[in-house]
């Protein structure tokens, strides 16, 4: 082996009865990299992570952490792994410090080294001042930070984070993204799942796009964007839903994909990316996104078709090619729905 694979997933399957949650995924993360697993809700990200962390047995295939199989050598695999679950898993009636000390013990730390490490982690997650408060009194963002801190206590070479920024304030989000960078700079391998393409773009060395239980694309950010070729993504807002118009647009020459951007409760980071910690913006219910070959040539035809259907276009937004466009290109669906 040229480089050691920190995470190796081979032909992994996991079903729930008839439902195939993970349907034959092969994937690898090199030691020291950030691998983002990007996909909409229900894609199978959490299921894959449950198998990697030893909570679920795979129904087929295998996976390993630092060379230890999660099925045959589970204890060794777990010792190399810190897991940040998607839902906060802490004791609300204990303080942040009490939580960290307890979880540190579960990872086998004791005494002085334990308390020194807890101090370090509290510093890292920015909760040194509030460490004696009970977790139940924390904001959502603070809880998420403790939730992450728990997974770092034992200096694991590999950390898996399952959507760690869902539903929190911009400051906490910023802090979490920064700490992922810091951890990675210190040599940790990070598997980071998200349905925010901006996070994947910002953090990841490699990105695996997952949909309906399968990895449908894998590469660096630039490699994935190159899949779009000359295509541009345009978002068009309409005065009303106009269901028929979508089919009319699909028939327009130079248009490859059309989908509605549903008004989504899920947070969506602002356009400027996540660097400014912009808070999610809500997209209008009547906005349609399309992939087109050459916007100069195709846009007039879209306006014509709209007129013919009696629809009025209220705004047009020509986007930088991004991962969302890649997802649209691959699946015909917008990432956010």
């Amino acid at each position: 082996m040229a480089t050691e694979r920190a995470i190796q997933v081979s032909e992994l399957y996991r079903t729930y009865g008839d439902l195939i949650a993970v349907g034959g995924v092969s994937l690898a993360a090199e030691a020291g990299e950030v691998l983002a697993l990007l996909g909409p809700n229900g894609a199978g990200k959490s299921t894959l992570i449950s198998v990697l962390s030893g909570l679920l047995a795979p129904t087929g295939g295998d996976a390993s952490i630092m060379g230890h199989s999660v099925t045959r050598d589970a204890a060794a695999a777990r010792a190399c792994l810190g897991v940040v679950p998607q839902d906060i898993a802490l004791y609300p009636d204990l303080s942040a410090r009490e939580n960290l000390v307890f979880w540190g013990k579960m990872y086998g730390l004791r005494g002085r080294p334990l308390h020194a490490r807890v101090d370090e982690v509290l510093e890292l997650i920015g909760l040194t001042d509030r460490q004696r408060d009970r977790v139940s009194r924390y904001s959502g963002g603070m809880k998420r930070r403790v939730n992450i801190g728990v997974a770092l206590l034992h200096h694991p070479p590999v950390v898996i984070m399952d959507e760690p920024t869902v539903g929190i304030d911009p400051q906490s989000r910023r802090r979490i993204l920064d700490s992922v960078r810091q951890l990675n700079a210190a040599g940790m391998t990070v598997l980071y799942t998200t349905h925010y393409m901006e996070e994947a773009a910002e953090l990841a060395d490699h990105i695996a796009i997952m949909d309906r239980g399968l990895v449908i694309a894998y590469g660096t950010h630039d490699e994935l964007i190159r899949m779009l070729g000359s295509q541009t993504r345009v978002d068009l807002s309409l005065d009303a839903p106009h269901e028929d118009l979508l089919d009319a647009w699909r028939a327009v020459e130079g248009v490859s994909q059309v989908d509605r951007l549903g008004a989504n409760e899920d947070a969506q980071p602002g356009e400027q990316g996540v660097d400014d910690g912009a808070f999610p913006v809500q997209t209008g219910a009547n906005t349609v996104t399309a992939l087109v070959d050459d916007s100069n040539r195709v846009l007039p035809r879209l306006f014509e078709a709209a007129s013919a259907a009696g629809a009025r276009i209220t705004s047009v937004d020509i986007r930088e090619p991004n991962l969302e466009a890649v997802f649209l290109y691959l699946t015909g669906r917008a990432l956010r729905d």
Partner: peptide
């Protein structure tokens, strides 16, 4: 229900 049991199961504790 609150996920701490699952989290315990992810630690190297039998």
């Amino acid at each position: 229900e609150q996920g701490t049991l699952a989290r315990l199961f992810t630690t190297p504790t039998s």
